[in-house]
Structure formats: C-alpha cells, structure tokens
C-alpha cells in the first residue's frame, strides 16, 4: 500500500492490434428472451463509435455486460487483449479504465458538484486512503479544469440534486472525465437537452475521441449525424449493419427496422 500513496499504478491494457474492446459471441437471455444474441462488436483504440437501434435492441444490455453489471450466458468480452471482463467485478472494471454514463443521469444528489467530481477522481480508492487522504493540489487543478469544461464552475458548491437535467448530464460526463478512463460508454447523452446543449455535447465528445475511446448509444438521429463517424446498428441483440453513417442510412435492412419507422 505504501508505494501506492495517492497515485494509482497504471494497469497495462494491451492494444497492440489496434482494438480496445472485443465483444465476441455474447449471448444474454432473460427468462428465455434473448437480449443479446451472439453479438460481435469491436471498438478501435481512440475511436468514437455510435451505436443505434430500436428499443429492445440490446444496447443497454451490451453496456451492462461490458461494465460487469450483467454476466453473459456465452461469449467473451476482452478489454485490450489481456483483460477478460466477464471475470471481473464492476469496480475492478471501472478501475481498469472503463467509465460509464447511465441513461438516466446518475449523480450523487446530496453532494455538491465539486464533491461529485472528487469522488469520481481517478485515485487510489481503498478504504484507508479515503479515510486519510484528500485531493492533492494537482488533482484540484485537474478538477477545476473539468469544471471549466463542463461549464459548472459557478455551481461547484451547489448540491447536485438542484442542477437542471442537462447540467446533471454534463456533471456525469465530468465525473467520467476525472476518472480518466481509456474507454467511455455513454448512454443517451443528449436526452432531454436543449439544442444548444446538444451542440456543446457533440463538441465535447468529439474532443474526447483520440485520447479516449468513446462509445455512444443514442436515439437522436441529428446528434448521430453531427458526430458522423462509424455507426453500428443493433437489432434484436445482433449487429444489423455497421459502417459509415451515409452507408448505414441507405441500407434497406436498416431502413426497414429503424429509420423507416
């Protein structure tokens, strides 16, 4: 423990082959209903990927599997080439560098905005460290930077429960940023946001790609178009189509199940 102090030893994630996340042959069923059916998805290191699909396509279940909330019946999920996520618990996966934003904004309502970021901050998170250490000056600076990025500097001492819906979404993204993950899974980031807020979110997510790998699940087609990158369409727990936005949009199968409706 002594060597750890406030620094965390970096886990090595092997991305030699350019891929950071391998979801292979994953099947999850709930009472006979197959939420995921032999799903294969690969995310490249540093890429910004959108995942779309009608309700019940398995988007959120896929995130649950990757973050350790749900165990797959079959299949493997690898983070880099060397970490089998199906063997790990939620907090171990989070520590390894996978951050998740929930569909419904989930922040600590009774903590201030600053405290929310403090709790999420990437540092040694065992009991003893939490009891005896607080943020170092350097970590505070990083937190202030993130506050700037998510536009909540003036609200830093406000209870998070009092933020507007859009601000909560941003705070949650901010919590992911201070967690400094290799891979961000973001579930419906612009739900309930105004047009301006959506635009700002697009900018933010675009700026994150490269340094982090980002997977965004979204319904909002305008939003996906504005990100305009590689898109994966899920349908009934499988990949229906995969490719550039323009190609996917013109795919007759996709039009039939999703875009056409």
């Amino acid at each position: 423990m002594s060597s750890a102090e406030t620094q965390v030893k970096e886990e090595s994630v092997n991305t030699m082959h350019g891929c950071i996340l391998y979801v292979e042959g994953v099947t999850v069923s709930f009472d006979g209903f197959k939420a995921l059916d032999d799903l294969n998805v690969y995310i490249d290191d540093g890429e910004l990927r959108c995942i779309i699909g009608p309700n019940g396509a398995g988007k959120t279940t896929m995130m649950d599997v990757v973050t350790g909330k749900t165990r797959p019946d079959r299949g493997t999920v690898f983070f880099g080439q060397n970490h089998d996520l199906t063997e790990m618990t939620e907090y171990e996966i989070a520590h390894l560098g996978i951050g998740r934003k929930f569909q419904k904004p989930t922040v600590f309502q009774n903590h201030t905005v600053f405290e929310n970021l403090e709790l999420a901050f990437h540092t040694n998170k065992n009991v003893w460290m939490s009891l005896t250490k607080s943020l170092t000056g350097e970590q505070r600076e990083k937190t202030d930077e993130v506050l700037e990025t998510i536009g909540l500097v003036n609200q830093m001492n406000l209870r998070a429960g009092l933020l507007s819906h859009g601000q909560k979404q941003w705070l949650e993204i901010g919590m992911l940023l201070v967690q400094d993950p290799r891979l961000l899974l973001i579930d419906e980031p612009v739900a309930g946001m105004t047009h301006q807020e959506t635009e700002a979110t697009v900018e933010l997510l675009k700026s994150l790609a490269g340094k982090h790998s980002v997977v965004v699940v979204e319904h909002e087609m305008d939003f996906i178009r504005s990100i305009a990158n590689r898109v994966t369409v899920l349908h009934e727990g499988r990949v229906l189509a995969d490719g550039k936005m323009e190609d996917v949009q013109n795919d007759p199968k996709v039009i039939e199940v999703y875009l056409g409706s």
Partner: peptide, 30 residues
C-alpha cells in the same frame, strides 16, 4: 469519519450505490 472523503463515499453509497461501483470503489469494503 463522516467528514473525510470516506464519509462522502458512504453517503454516496446510500444515494446511488451502482454509481459508486462504476466509479471504481469496492463498496463491499466500505
């Protein structure tokens, strides 16, 4: 205890345990 960061983790567990886990805390130990 309650004024330390650990105290804030505890109230966070009370309010949103899964968020605490996904932030990398082993809530069992806490």
């Amino acid at each position: 205890v309650v004024k330390s960061k650990l105290g804030r983790v505890l109230t966070a567990i009370r309010d949103a345990e899964s968020r605490v886990m996904f932030s990398g805390y082993n809530t069992l130990h806490y």
